[in-house]
């Protein structure tokens, strides 16, 4: 079982966390101004890369805070965790 480093609590077992999908997909400010295709992209479309992926995680059975992480989807390795208001860090 992996350890995931919650930015608020430090490393905890992965069962304490829940996954929240791709990060940096903000809710559109004015959905009514979007056409159907643009809105569908927000609702249904997410990236699914092999390799580094910026994701949302929730320490749901811990401090219950949401945070972002850069994780390698091929190795499961977490390369960075950061707060929601931080920009995506540059990983080596």
């Amino acid at each position: 079982m992996q350890l995931i480093a919650c930015p608020w609590c430090g490393p905890r077992e992965e069962v304490e966390f829940s996954y929240g999908g791709q990060a940096h997909v903000p809710h559109p400010a004015a959905p009514a101004d979007l056409n159907d295709e643009e809105w569908a992209h927000y609702v249904f479309f997410r990236a699914n890369p092999k390799g580094r992926f910026a994701e949302r995680w929730n320490h749901s059975a811990g401090c219950r805070r949401w945070f972002n992480a850069v994780r390698d989807t091929a190795t499961y390795r977490f390369e960075a965790v950061y707060r929601l208001d931080d920009p995506r860090p540059v990983t080596p």
């Binding site: 929240g20 929730n58 805070r65 949401w66 929601l84």
Partner: peptide, 10 residues
């Protein structure tokens, strides 16, 4: 959870 998610993330 739903309310918390929106309050925290959006």
């Amino acid at each position: 959870d739903w309310m918390e998610e929106w309050v925290q993330t959006e």
